[in-house]
Amino acid sequence: MAQQPTSPKSETPTEKPAPILVQMSIFAVILFVSSLISPLFPASLPVPTPVIGIVILYTLLATHILKLHHVEKFADFMISLIAFLFVPAGVQLAANLDILKTQGIQITIVVLIATIVMLVLVSYTAVGLIWLRQHLFHRQHTVEQESTQSTN
């Protein structure tokens, strides 16, 4: 691989991203370890492999064992693909058309209601709790400023 000339003393040291195969390998190792941990949970409390994987990767990043540039590029790429990756899950409905034929309209309406209700209630609860903290406990609340910074 050709070495890119990097300026030795730059003001903001932006690390070179790890090679994509290394990033994929990190994901593969985390996925493998997660798949070993997942069966340890009892059947009454299932915790699937990818959920354990998020926790492991987050822990590795938060403890600075992994740096963002080790995983960032591949992670952003996978997230940009997520809608496409769900196409087979949607097409899978073809195998369950019988269920949808009998109760399909009711189920669709309930799911539509449920989706909106979960979005609204969780959001409003969060807003309410943060408002409580702000007004009852008089703590600093600087989310708005941080959000305007981060969008740039």
Binding site: I56, Y58, I79
Partner: peptide
């Protein structure tokens, strides 16, 4: 590939 894609959300 939803497995690695889900794990990727640890980054954001």
């Amino acid at each position: 590939f939803l497995n690695p894609a889900t794990i990727a959300f640890a980054v954001p």
